[in-house]
């Protein structure tokens, strides 16, 4: 028996087709972004060898010299400092929240961390300029016996660390909670203390997941723009200490959007910077996501 196509059926099928197209379009965004930025950065890639672009620190756009090394190093330094500060704090906090704190404390702390995650990066930047920069200028630098304006890698790293707290805590907390209660009980039952159980059992199970959380934090730090830009000094030199200023890639892009058109190849160079950011972040995110999927499978 053949049923005639009712209006309802037609609607259902149409909706299905349209939604499929939208879904595919949303997925394709990732390819469009890579392709679009690659297309825009082709002129600069064609004009100089990759080694020149990535391993030279000569940045003289007027003369057509575009060496990204200072910017890449700036990004790496700031990200590194942020991660070094954030990881131990976040891990200890996650363990506390997951293993020691009672549910009341957890219910209180979680929304606070959500609020932290929601604060706009400009506000972090303002805070950095008002508090962190003077602190480094007046306290840290004299203590280390050097002069600094305060606008430095350390300032960027501190601000960035706070910005990635929520990311790392959120993911690692989820991982710790995913470790089954029975595993803990088994360890406690043989006379281990709570801390021994955490150290030898919970951490062992959760370690890859924690690594994924850290990788996610790194990739978030890598691309953060405004807050870092406001406190890091923006000097295009390879930094040698955390009290030096630096000029990370995102800041380079954001600061120079006005001049892009007048200098040949400049806009292409900035698009290449965006492409580098995109590719690194895609790689890191994909990596962390893959670890997480695997961890979640193995924990259950």
């Amino acid at each position: 028996m053949k049923v005639p196509m009712s209006a309802r059926r037609v609607k259902d099928i149409m909706a299905s087709k349209i939604m499929l197209v939208l879904t595919l379009a949303a997925v394709a965004l990732i390819f469009f972004m890579v392709a679009g930025l690659y297309f825009k950065s082709r002129p600069i890639l064609a004009s100089q060898p990759l080694s020149e672009l990535f391993f030279s620190s000569r940045w003289r756009p007027f003369r057509g010299e575009f060496g990204f090394l200072s910017f890449i190093m700036g990004t790496v330094w700031v990200t590194g400092v942020a991660v070094l500060i954030a990881v131990p704090l976040c891990l200890l906090t996650s363990i506390y929240l997951s293993e020691y704190a009672n549910s009341k404390v957890r219910e209180w702390v979680k929304p606070l961390i959500d609020i932290l995650a929601g604060i706009p990066s400009v506000v972090f930047g303002v805070w950095g300029m008002l508090v962190v920069v003077p602190f480094i200028k007046d306290v840290v630098a004299p203590f280390a016996g050097v002069f600094s304006t305060g606008y430095s890698i350390l300032a960027g790293g501190i601000v960035l660390a706070i910005m990635i707290f929520p990311v790392i805590i959120h993911v690692s907390l989820e991982i710790f909670r995913a470790v089954p209660q029975e595993v803990r009980e088994a360890s406690l039952a043989v006379g281990a203390t709570r801390w021994q159980t955490i150290k030898h059992v919970v951490m062992r199970k959760a370690l890859p997941g924690v690594a994924a959380a850290v990788v996610l934090g790194i990739s978030r730090a890598f691309g953060e723009t405004m807050a870092v830009l406001m406190v890091v000094g923006n000097v295009a030199k390879i930094p040698h200490s955390v009290l030096d200023p630096a000029y990370p890639l995102p800041a380079l892009i954001a600061n120079n959007y006005g001049e892009m058109m007048s200098i040949p190849l400049y806009d292409s160079a900035l698009m290449l910077a965006a492409l580098i950011l995109l590719l690194v972040v895609l790689l890191f995110n994909a990596l962390s996501k893959m670890i997480l999927i695997r961890v979640q499978r193995s924990i259950r």
Binding site: T23, A26, V27, L29, I30, F32, M33, G36, L37, F39, K40, L216, S219, R220, F222, G223, E224, T225, P250, I253, A254, Y257, L270, M271, A274, L277, L278, V281, L282, F284, N285, A286, K289, I293
Partner: peptide, 22 residues
């Protein structure tokens, strides 16, 4: 799809800005 969207979630906003600009 979920994987792709998760990855896209981490793309920095400056990159969206640059892409939007192109």
């Amino acid at each position: 799809c979920r994987f792709t969207f998760d990855v896209l979630c981490g793309v920095p906003s400056i990159v969206y800005g640059a892409f939007g600009f192109t």
